[in-house]
Design a protein around this nucleic acid. Structure first.
Lengths: 230, 230
DNA sequence: GTCTATACACAGATAGAC
DNA sequence: GTCTATCTGTGTATAGAC
């Protein structure tokens, strides 16, 4: 699997950015006051793009509603018919981001049985997804801590869930004898750290013209050298 | 080297949190309106502790001066005799943090010659320092992007500098035949990612009772399995 | 050196015209 | 559905008493 093939895979499974906006619309129909789906989805996309852009530069809490109005090209009043407070906007984006990651990893995970290929597939899928939706990933990482207690718990569960996906593969591979005996939690954490590096320091790799395929292959080599049984 | 020995090492080289505050005082004497060193250093420590605590919970830009006043136990007026704006406070903390990291890594780097032991020493020193000054590291990572262009450049240079320390060791080790032929920049980036993981997800390891010594040893094992020539 | 009181700007959010 | 105008609370920063 490389990045290009992964994009095709995402399209086939209705996991584009546009369908993410459609999900946001359907899951928040009580608060979104717009009736026409097409209008709502189109504007939600404009809003999200603007949020990601501004937040990348100054963070969500420093972003003012007037900033968002200018960047999205919509008026203050119009914005407030898509969410009822700035805080709710934050929650909506984070919740949808988490469910997107979970869905995709689940899909990929079910496509493989053998531990080594499953491990590689899951690592690559996460990297490729973070490349495709990099502003979303960056946003989730940087803004998750600014949530209220309840929403914060949702994020924590997601963190543990993606970790557990890796841990389970490592455990199973150890039993089958394909993978070395190791501390599963520490290995999984380190793998997650390598994945995070990609979307947190995207600018560095862009500047050095390192592609996501090159980075992914290097991570896999690194992980293999430590995990594979001899 | 373990964490306890590293703390002794820091004390011997005047790299405590208190001396960091003293440096802040001496390097900003034009803007700090307090004359008595002892008073200034004591209050700067209170201010920094309060900034780190509040910022960890809600981020720097969401921290109000009133929050800082309450948490530090100093009045608004008093705070403004230690820095002339909230933005300047941010700059001061980031600049001092960067110079602390640079100094310590330089010190440790000069104590070793042989590539493998030098690599391990530098990796561990960074991890141990981030453990000792974890709020400072967390703050630097999360708030660096909210700087103006000039200050932002300082941070970038620091990022490249710490990366270069590792790259140089890898190159030298390759020449001497101790380390494998590899992409030095990618390996260094991945090592940095593992170091970041420790201070960014400190709560996770605290909850699981994983100590910095355990984490450091695991990182070293991981790196050795990939880097050492056979 | 530190405090309280306050200036003044700007934030989030809403009402009501179109 | 979207706009403009505006309310009201809260932000940073300062002035001047102690």
């Amino acid at each position: 699997m490389n990045y290009e093939k992964f994009l095709t895979f995402l399209n086939e499974h209705e996991e584009t950015l546009e369908s993410a906006c459609r999900r946001v619309y359907f899951e928040n129909q009580e608060t979104i006051m717009i009736k026409k789906e097409k209008t709502a989805v189109k504007n939600l996309k404009k809003i999200l793009d603007a949020v990601f852009k501004i937040t990348y530069e100054k963070g969500f809490s420093a972003m003012t509603m007037r900033d968002l109005s200018n960047e999205s090209g919509m008026s203050l009043g119009a914005l407030y018919s898509y969410f009822k407070s700035k805080e709710e906007l934050l929650n909506i984006i984070l919740r949808q981001g988490i469910s997107m990651v979970t869905r995709v990893l689940e899909l990929v995970s079910q496509m493989h049985n053998e531990p080594v290929s499953k491990l590689e597939a899951v690592i690559k899928a996460h990297l490729f997804l973070s490349e495709k939706a990099r502003s979303w990933f960056y946003f989730m990482f940087m803004e998750a801590k600014n949530l209220n207690a309840q929403e914060c718990d949702t994020v924590l569960k997601a963190e543990y869930h993606t970790e557990k996906v890796i841990v389970d593969i490592l455990k199973n591979g150890e039993i089958l004898g394909d993978l070395k005996k190791q501390n599963h939690i520490l290995t999984a954490s380190i793998i997650k750290a390598m994945q995070q590096e990609w979307y947190l320091k995207r600018w560095k790799y862009a500047k050095r013209k390192i592609t996501v395929d090159e980075y992914a292959d290097y991570v896999i080599k690194f992980v293999r050298s430590f995990c594979i049984a001899k």
